[in-house]
């Protein structure tokens, strides 16, 4: 028996998200009186695999080989499923991000394993196996019972703290060769979002809505984000108008985020917007309308015009940072 955690890498490196997943899997393994095993697929930078050992796993598998430089869902799912079987995994943990969402359902069918998707806590019980997950786009949570011997969990981002624990795990390097004919997905072009902090990774997010009035007014908002080391985001009308790219749209049909701090500037707070940001630990709202629903979701608020408040806020942050 074991708990297997799949840790995706970005150009050969892991992120905080990877370590959150490993910490979580180790705790689940403790609940089940078993061991946690981390699995990485694809080439890693040297010394990177060892880092997973700091978060409670007893073994690290680093699988690499030809044909793995493209994320082909079918190929990756097969590899992860084979390791799950080999290691006798009864729980498989993945991130609830684009890659986890692409792979977990394929694994589910391969392993005939029920999925708890968007889980945000440790399992509520292990016998029966019950997880706590998002439902109705952040407006509710569900207790979901998984009735299969193998269970798959996709963990919501920023929902579990890192727990450092070194079990002296060894790295097992495994060569996985994939025949070129099996790889159906071919990459034609890659556009990397260079240098910017990713919205889904950011601990602080500064987001603007229609109250910003024009795409030309974004300067101070971006400056605030830069000063805070934050990512920028926007509401749906803003991306629909083309003021900002749709990859910045946070809300029910855009990105679902859970930063520590979310600034909603000139955003009224429609149900659909709140659905995407309600898991933020703290929300700060700036809006001219004191009755705007965003103030019901926010812990801190300023009633005022974004154009006037933002420059003062920027000054206040500059002062803070200069201390």
């Amino acid at each position: 028996m074991s708990v297997l955690v799949y840790t995706e890498n970005w150009d050969g490196k892991f992120k905080k998200l990877s370590f959150e997943l490993v910490s979580y899997a180790s705790k689940v393994a403790e609940m089940l009186n078993t061991k946690a095993i981390a699995l990485s697929v694809g080439k890693l930078e040297s010394g990177e695999a060892e880092k997973l050992g700091n978060y409670g796993v007893s073994k690290i598998i680093s699988a690499a080989g030809e044909g793995l430089n493209v994320l082909d869902n079918q190929v990756y799912a097969k590899i992860i499923a084979d390791f799950a079987v080999k290691e006798g995994a009864t729980v498989v943990v993945l991130a609830n991000n684009n890659v986890g969402k692409a792979l977990a359902p394929r694994l589910s069918v391969r392993l005939k394993a029920g999925i708890g998707a968007g889980v945000n806590k440790l399992p509520v019980s292990t016998e029966p196996f019950v997880v706590h997950k998002r439902a109705y786009s952040g407006n509710a949570f569900a207790h979901l019972q998984i009735n299969t011997p193998v269970r798959i969990i996709t963990l919501s981002q920023n929902s579990f703290e890192l727990i450092e624990k070194n079990m002296g795990a060894a790295v097992e390097n495994v060569n996985v060769s994939v025949d070129a004919s099996e790889v159906k997905t071919q990459v034609r072009e890659v556009q990397k979002q260079g240098g910017k902090i990713l919205l889904t990774d950011a601990e602080i997010v500064v987001s603007g809505g229609r109250g910003m009035k024009s795409p030309d007014n974004w300067g101070p908002l971006v400056e605030l984000a830069d000063l805070l080391g934050a990512a920028t985001a926007c509401s749906r009308p803003v991306s629909d108008e083309g003021w900002r790219g749709h990859e910045e749209h946070t809300g029910q049909t855009g990105k679902i985020i859970a930063p520590n701090l979310y600034f909603a500037i000139g955003i009224s707070g429609a149900t659909q917007h709140l659905a995407g940001v309600s898991s933020s630990k703290y929300i700060v709202a700036i809006n001219t309308d004191k009755d705007a629903p965003i103030f019901e979701a926010a812990q801190y608020g300023i009633v005022g015009d974004a154009q006037k408040v933002l420059p003062k806020l920027v000054e206040a942050v500059k002062e803070l940072k200069s201390k």
Binding site: A142, L144, F295, A298, Q299, K308, V309, K312, L313
Partner: peptide, 26 residues
Amino acid sequence: ALTGIISFEMPEPRAACKFVDAEDPK
């Protein structure tokens, strides 16, 4: 089916918003 929902719950209500003067973002 492999899974079943046992129950739902609503999110904890958030504390009331603290308002800060628009002239004093500090």
